[in-house]
């Protein structure tokens, strides 16, 4: 039951961000409690392909992977200049994003990083610290909303 509630929480979170702010893509990747803790993109909006469904996020690779590893927010406005990973295409490449910002999703009880919230643009608009703050606000609000 908790899983279902969590799922609808993230679904409405990405929808709210997508509607309120004018990002081209918003997604949440979250750790699967089964399947050896795989991290997959479960809640996505503004996608241009279905490839995200098959991707298993690898920690340390791509923006989302870096956020998962470090537990710190991260943003990049020059994604097209990033060297291509060896045999790996991060979500920003699959979704042809030029700029993206991502923040960690931390389990409130264990304080472990269990996922990532990522939003970005395809048309060379820039993301900033303000984008990170905005994503943080939405995430906090949705968690607060969830617990109340």
């Amino acid at each position: 039951m908790a899983d279902l509630a969590e799922q609808s929480q993230y679904d409405s979170l990405v929808q709210k961000i997508y509607q309120d702010a004018d990002f081209d893509f918003v997604g949440v990747a979250i750790q699967d409690r089964l399947n050896g803790g795989q991290i997959r993109w479960r809640h996505v909006i503004g996608n241009i392909s279905q490839r995200y469904r098959r991707i298993i996020l690898r920690t340390g690779l791509g923006i989302a992977g870096l956020v998962i590893r470090t537990g710190e927010p991260y943003f990049d406005n020059h994604l097209d200049q990033q060297p291509q990973e060896f045999m790996y295409t991060p979500i920003t490449v699959v979704e042809k994003l030029t700029a993206a910002a991502a923040i960690p999703i931390v389990d409130p009880t264990t304080q472990l990083v269990t996922g990532v919230l990522l939003a970005g643009y395809r048309d060379n608009r820039n993301v900033t610290h303000a984008t990170i703050a905005k994503l943080g606000y939405y995430l906090k609000h949705s968690e607060h909303h969830q617990s109340s």
């Binding site: 279905q50 490839r51 995200y52 469904r53 098959r54 991707i55 298993i56 045999m87 295409t89």
Partner: peptide, 10 residues
């Protein structure tokens, strides 16, 4: 399987 998981390509 590894490439599918890494790239999302079917």
């Amino acid at each position: 399987q590894r490439l599918q998981e890494n790239t999302g390509i079917k």
